[in-house]
Write a protein that binds this DNA or RNA. Structure first.
Length: 212
DNA sequence: TAGGCCATCTGGTCCT
DNA sequence: AGGACCAGATGGCCTA
């Protein structure tokens, strides 16, 4: 399965702080650019009063009404709500794009062939988890073979020491059944066998003798 | 056509 | 008040 081969704005996102994607509509743009009515400045008549220099009077009026925000008409309220919602939507979209950018960066450092289908989000996370685990084990075993240390037994569960169960894995994320270890999941996907070919990604390579 | 994946919208909650 | 984060809902696209 190749998720949306065309029209994936998230893939093109490279910079987090910039606006990496076209904002949906011009209506939305104007709504976002033009800041919503600020409660401290008030709207409509309030602005006129302040602009004409009647600040103390305005302040008294506000105090009498019991707060910074003056009551608005129903239409003004709904307009403000819509404006806030659109701004929130825009931020949320941006946030998700940033998240996808990070995910793409992660895909970029994982060992897959260029012509492979793009890993899904969950596959990317699980693949990365197992990959890190395998690399950690590689380093550990290399250290022990170099310095003749005792073989590590107690920390084989998870590289970060966290609960392997978080990833649906057992003692070894690589050999876990059911969840997406690179070996299993990618074999399930036609055209994605290649990433599983490295020795450290095969369940049979748990001895890690292949890549020492 | 069903199911998987994804982007987006939305309302709620927490924090500053 | 406003932003960040989250989870649920929804609809589109694609593949088996």
């Amino acid at each position: 399965m190749a998720p949306h081969p065309s029209g994936t704005p998230a893939v093109a996102v490279t910079h987090e702080t910039e606006q990496p994607f076209p904002v949906a509509s011009t209506e939305e743009v104007t709504c976002i650019v033009s800041s919503p009515p600020s409660p401290t400045r008030g709207t409509g008549g309030c602005v006129e009063a302040e602009g004409s220099g009647c600040r103390s009077a305005t302040r008294k009026l506000r105090a009498r009404r019991g707060g910074r925000s003056r009551p608005k008409s129903e239409s003004a309220l709904s307009k403000q709500r819509r404006s806030r919602r659109k701004k929130a939507n825009d931020r949320e979209r941006n946030r998700m794009h940033n998240l996808n950018s990070a995910l793409d960066a992660l895909r970029g450092v994982l060992p897959t062939f260029p012509d492979d289908a793009k890993l899904t989000k969950i596959e990317t996370l699980r693949f990365a988890h197992n990959y890190i685990w395998a690399l950690t084990q590689t380093l550990r075993i290399a250290d022990h073979s170099l310095y003749g240390l005792e073989p590590p037994c107690e920390e084989m569960g998870s590289p970060d020491g966290g609960s392997p169960g978080d990833w649906g894995s057992l003692s070894s994320p690589v050999s876990q059944a059911g969840s997406l270890s690179p070996a299993t999941s990618l074999e399930e996907r036609p055209g994605l066998q290649a990433p599983a070919s490295p020795a450290y990604l095969r369940p049979s390579a748990l001895a890690f003798s292949d890549f020492l």
